[in-house]
Design a protein around this nucleic acid. Structure first.
Length: 618
DNA sequence: AGCACGCCGACT
DNA sequence: GTCGGCGTGCTC
């Protein structure tokens, strides 16, 4: 990777003979202090490094990573940017403008994070500054001044138990693994076994003087991981990088992460961009969870960013998931990633057919609940109700949907005197107390119970499998697996009304085999993850032009249709073509990407947009 | 974003 | 000839 950042698209346009405007013949290379600056601008045309003269008055302060204000001649504007490198020469035509001022001397954009942002943007035909918005938190002047003034000492070394997985990661190995499959008690309470697994790996990595980054999908998982870490030897090294926390805390954690480690950096998807000078291991928990998909352009998900960061940094990569996705299985089969060990513990899953007389709960499952309730709480997982279904229910419309509320009502009647607790998007619960009770939860909202549930009922499996999605089967396996892992070690897990491959995968706890079969099917169908997809929307003319350019580099149209004020197209292409497909898209965005506004007041004009690896092609 | 430049049609 | 509308390209 080019440490100064690659000016790829633009350089390629110029070709080997140099600038098309003929400036180079008259422009001698100048010798002076030159700063290479990336501008904080979302315009694709400005997404390359700009050269600025470093005035002697600023020579002391200008350094790679600092925020600067620079003039942008057109319209006499001053733009924000970051210095990413300092050189002695410039190829830019004309006189260099001087840097206007240094915003602060804190080097907030670490060189490797810049290289990562550049690579992420290039892979997704995006703009580096859009990625930097995720990678560098908003400046907090007070916090920064305090940090600049403070004495900084490296954290004291810690004593941690040696761990073979951590040792492998520090060597730079790439590993796919399944976690301990039951809840575990630590000083702060009961947490998922996965969190204790990861706390151990992070502590051992810190014991070797290296930093670990762990990215998890959501706040609930982050809380569990933090609890597990605070109970262990690495408690003092934890930095929580979490967009939902106050900006000052977020910025303070970012500045601390810039210091030499070891640290244990934990957070949601933005944590994958955290600066880490002594990075030893990159960990993604539940890489297939939709919360790992970035909703902001250029939409790069945690797993893909982690893969790029692993390749650039040479740190280890651990993809730990409650079940194997076809995407990770592909990495394993390519030999890019190795499998690690066998999962520890395995829920006792019973496949239970639907009741012949049409009762909501088959009698075998009913007996399991009854039995479980003599010892403690039991869990019933139902599919997501959905707002429309709930509104219909309230309005008294037929048909009545199956949802957490109705199931809870029925169960309450079936088990009189037993408390019923509902957990869903509107009633968020992280944990429940011990003692007999029925916990009815929509998938993904299941609370944890001390010691684990005495029985788990996966009630709406068949319904979940009806969801229209490219990824239904593996999504269901993941939802069921996460609920199953909340069971006490000897408690039964009943999967109701589902048979076939996916049910057997859960019962045998062999999701990798299932993922391998999914992958084989997808290979013959030419579906992701064996090929990649990209979607473009915009004015028909721009979309048509892009489709032609894409066809020339090996992308074929999967679907095409009208879109509000324009067109939408989805193409697929072999993974090998990814680089060219992204380059071509970036060129199209430079031509058509910025708004050409007609006379106001008019609706905002359609603009060309490109999205790589959309989760659903539709 | 906002400004210069240049190409083409309509005018003194 | 030349004025000016607007589409195109550029910003170190």
């Amino acid at each position: 990777m080019d440490g100064a950042g690659s000016d790829t698209v633009r350089d390629r346009h110029r070709g080997p003979s140099g600038s098309p405007d003929g400036f180079e013949a008259t422009t001698a290379r100048r010798r002076e202090r030159v700063a290479k600056v990336v501008l904080d601008s979302p315009l694709p045309r400005l997404d390359h490094l700009f050269d600025y003269r470093i005035p002697t008055a600023l020579a002391e302060e200008v350094a790679p990573g600092v925020r600067v204000k620079v003039p942008l001649r057109v319209a006499g504007r001053v733009a924000d940017g970051w210095v990413v490198a300092i050189t002695d020469t410039s190829e830019a035509p004309g006189e260099l403008s001087p840097i206007d001022r240094v915003v602060s001397t804190a080097p907030v954009l670490a060189p490797d994070v810049w290289a990562l942002a550049r690579a992420v943007a290039d892979r997704n035909a995006g703009v580096a500054s859009d990625v930097l918005r995720l990678a560098v938190p908003k400046r907090q002047a007070r916090v920064e001044q305090r940090w600049l003034a403070s004495e900084r000492a490296a954290p004291a070394p810690i004593e941690a138990e040696a761990d073979p997985l951590a040792a492998a990661l520090i060597e730079g190995r790439r590993i796919a693994a399944l976690p301990t499959a039951h809840v575990v008690e630590v000083a702060g309470g009961w947490v998922g076994g996965w969190a204790v697994d990861l706390a151990q790996v992070a502590a051992a990595t810190a014991g070797a003087g290296r930093t670990t980054i762990v990215a998890v999908p959501d706040r609930r998982d982050l809380d569990q991981l933090e609890t597990a870490l605070l109970a262990g030897p690495a408690a003092g090294l934890v930095l929580r990088i979490d967009a939902s926390r106050p900006p000052a805390a977020r910025y303070r954690a970012h500045l601390t992460a810039l210091e030499s480690g070891p640290h244990v950096i934990i957070g949601n998807r933005s944590a994958i961009y955290a600066p880490a000078p002594d990075l030893g291991a990159i960990v993604v928990w539940e890489e297939a969870d939709p919360f790992h998909q970035e909703p902001l352009a250029p939409y790069a998900g945690t797993r893909d960013v982690a893969l790029l960061r692993q390749e650039q940094s040479g740190a280890g990569l651990l993809l730990l998931s409650s079940s194997r996705s076809s995407t990770v299985q592909r990495l394993v089969e390519l030999g890019w990633c190795e499998e690690w060990g066998a999962p520890r513990g395995r829920p006792e899953v019973v496949l239970t057919p639907d009741d012949a007389r049409g009762a909501r709960i088959p009698s075998a499952a009913y007996r399991a609940l009854q039995q479980g309730l003599t010892a403690g709480p039991v869990l019933v997982q139902v599919s997501k109700p959905g707002d429309a279904a709930l509104r219909a229910l309230r309005a008294g419309d037929a048909p009545v949907p199956i949802d957490a509320g109705r199931t809870a009502h029925e169960l309450g009647r079936a088990f009189p005197g037993v408390p019923v607790i509902v957990a869903d998007g509107d009633h968020v619960r992280d944990t429940v107390d011990p003692g007999p009770k029925l916990v009815v939860a929509t998938r993904g909202a299941e609370p944890r119970a001390p010691g684990g549930y005495r029985a788990v009922l996966l009630l709406d499996g068949a319904r979940m499998l009806l969801r229209e999605s490219l990824w239904v089967a593996e999504d269901c396996l993941r939802w069921w697996s996460t609920a199953a892992m909340l069971a006490a070690p000897d408690a039964p897990v009943h999967l109701v009304g589902v048979s076939g491959d996916v049910a057997i995968a859960l019962a045998t706890w062999r999701s990798p085999d299932f993922a391998a079969r999914q992958l084989a099917d997808r290979r013959t169908l030419r579906f992701p993850p064996t090929v990649r997809l990209a979607a473009a929307t915009g004015p028909a003319r721009a979309v048509e032009e892009l489709v032609e350019a894409w066809a020339a580099v090996g992308a074929d149209v999967l679907s095409r249709g009208p879109e509000e004020r324009g067109e939408r197209v989805v193409v697929r292409f072999p993974t090998r073509a990814g680089r060219r497909v992204a380059e071509v898209a970036k060129e199209a965005l430079i031509r058509h990407g910025s708004a050409r506004r007609p006379k106001p007041p008019a609706p905002p004009p359609p603009v060309l947009r490109v999205r790589f690896d959309p989760h659903e092609p539709g």
